[in-house]
Design a protein around this nucleic acid. Sequence first.
DNA 1: CTGATTATATATCGATTGATACATAACTAT
DNA 2: ATAGTTATGTATCAATCGATATATAATCAG
Lengths: 202, 202
Amino acid sequence: MTDTKKLGRPRNFDYDEALMQAMSVFWTKGYDGASLRDLTQAMGITGPSLYAAFGDKRELYLKTIDLYADVDGCAPVVAFENEEDITKAIKGFLSEVVHYATEHESGAKGCFLASSVVTTVGQIEGVAERVEAAIEDTEKRLAARFAREIDKCTLPTDFPSRERAALLYDLRQGYMFRGRAGWSGERMQKDVDARVQMLLSY
Amino acid sequence: MTDTKKLGRPRNFDYDEALMQAMSVFWTKGYDGASLRDLTQAMGITGPSLYAAFGDKRELYLKTIDLYADVDGCAPVVAFENEEDITKAIKGFLSEVVHYATEHESGAKGCFLASSVVTTVGQIEGVAERVEAAIEDTEKRLAARFAREIDKCTLPTDFPSRERAALLYDLRQGYMFRGRAGWSGERMQKDVDARVQMLLSY
DNA sequence: CTGATTATATATCGATTGATACATAACTAT
DNA sequence: ATAGTTATGTATCAATCGATATATAATCAG
């Protein structure tokens, strides 16, 4: 049984909350566009506190990427996994994506990975692996949901789960890109139904 | 008849070539990640020459975006427009996209707009309009090619040209994102045929 | 209490950033 | 040849960048 109490002076800020704020800044301004002043101001802490808690700028950046991949960015996937009716599940996923791309509470538009992180691939060590892992993890979860439907016999045994998962992912990326470019949610929502049908056709 | 000869000392560098090099730098490093040193070095000119020829960093950036939208980035679209057989046209488009995303001569991966410019939307004046215009222009050209097929009576009159153009565009963005993330062309090429079929189904 | 440990606040570091002043070079027009 | 115009090369600017040294404050173990 390990002691949870920590030594020394306690933090007077919330670690996770500060990390979320940092993510918003990187999301909006990009890695290089986000200055330490921007970050510390948004996080409500001073420079030395940032360095003590998160390491340098690059380490903080990688932590925000992990936060996005593991928690924030997969909201549509969770919705997809938790809806039993596959038609509603797909529609729910795409609708969540559209909503996410245009109405994120942070004010940032699009997808953190697709709209900001992607720029730093090949420039900052540790980013490329994380982006690739995020793609593969998401597609696996999407494919698994389709496969579950095959088990339920509501989709034929030769239904191409992996291909449709990849397709669903690309539709996600398309909506996220459009959201970043300024498209409204209503505009994108219009052809969701047609796409749902397409994803289930065979 | 206007005189083409210009006054003063002539440039000792090629304007378009330098602009292309600047695009490569922005594409690889992003707007904020690209320093004036990076730019002048790649362009083979000095700072004052850059400012005299292209204006400040932002103006140079916008010029590279226009270059991409008007010339370099639309290569797959041109291939799509120029192939008469619609099946081959779609396959050619997607194959060109995959090739473009992974084998661009500049060494940069993905799509300049989707992989770099998108980060600066909302940060640099003039970028958002350009990205939105690029999407709409491309989709219009893609839709027009489908519409031409309806005129040839090789597609039904109720074929959803606009929706399929949007779909084709999103597949493009998906491939570009994967290319930036490090996916190989071979890997992406695998499900091109299935997608061609899907795009023509009704 | 004392000592150890960790976080905070202030102040500031050298390096790099985007951008420019100045003098010179190369061209056209007359 | 001279004047006008534009580009180049050197040298350098103030501002901002990411990062840290130092001293102080707040907690726990004993």
